[in-house]
């Protein structure tokens, strides 16, 4: 069965990039352009992986992360946090809040793929 991935990201070019990378790894991609859309997706489906950007309109990636962890269905959902912000604090915040991985933009594609494999998703 094909694994599904939720990509929450407001920059269309980055959505395109991630879609390309993940589809090539065999995932079926669902994209959400803001936090609210991402939450709607999570409410209705149970993806096998989520990639969340922090700075999004409406709800931030952290908001989505918190909601997801409060939802028993997504307790074990592997979540990767992406951010373009410059704060080192963000990494700690993400891990504390239950993210499985944290990737800062700009990244190397290899990092993303390695993280995917590490998460075993």
């Amino acid at each position: 069965m094909t694994k599904t991935v939720l990509i929450a990201e407001d920059e269309p070019h980055i959505v395109e990039l991630l879609t390309f990378l993940l589809e090539r790894e065999g995932y079926a991609v669902t994209a959400a352009a803001d936090g609210e859309a991402a939450l709607t997706v999570l409410a209705n489906t149970t993806p096998d992986l989520a990639v969340l950007d922090v700075m999004m309109p409406k709800q931030s990636g952290f908001d989505v992360l918190r909601e997801a962890r409060n939802d028993p269905r997504h307790k074990d959902l592997p979540i990767i946090i992406l951010t373009a912000r410059g704060q080192t604090r963000d990494r700690e915040t993400a891990i504390e809040m239950g993210a499985d991985a944290f990737i800062a933009k700009p990244f190397s594609n290899q990092d993303v793929l390695a993280t995917l494999r590490r998460l075993g998703a």
Binding site: L17, L21, R85, G86, Q87, A104, K105, P106, S108, N109
Partner: peptide, 27 residues
């Protein structure tokens, strides 16, 4: 903090696309 985040975001976002897509094309 907000300001730095914003600047960082505005600079890193285009650079992410540039870097990753060029990596794909190169590899």
């Amino acid at each position: 903090d907000d300001f730095l985040n914003q600047v960082s975001h505005e600079l890193r976002t285009p650079m992410t696309s540039i870097r990753s897509f060029s990596e794909i094309l190169l590899e």
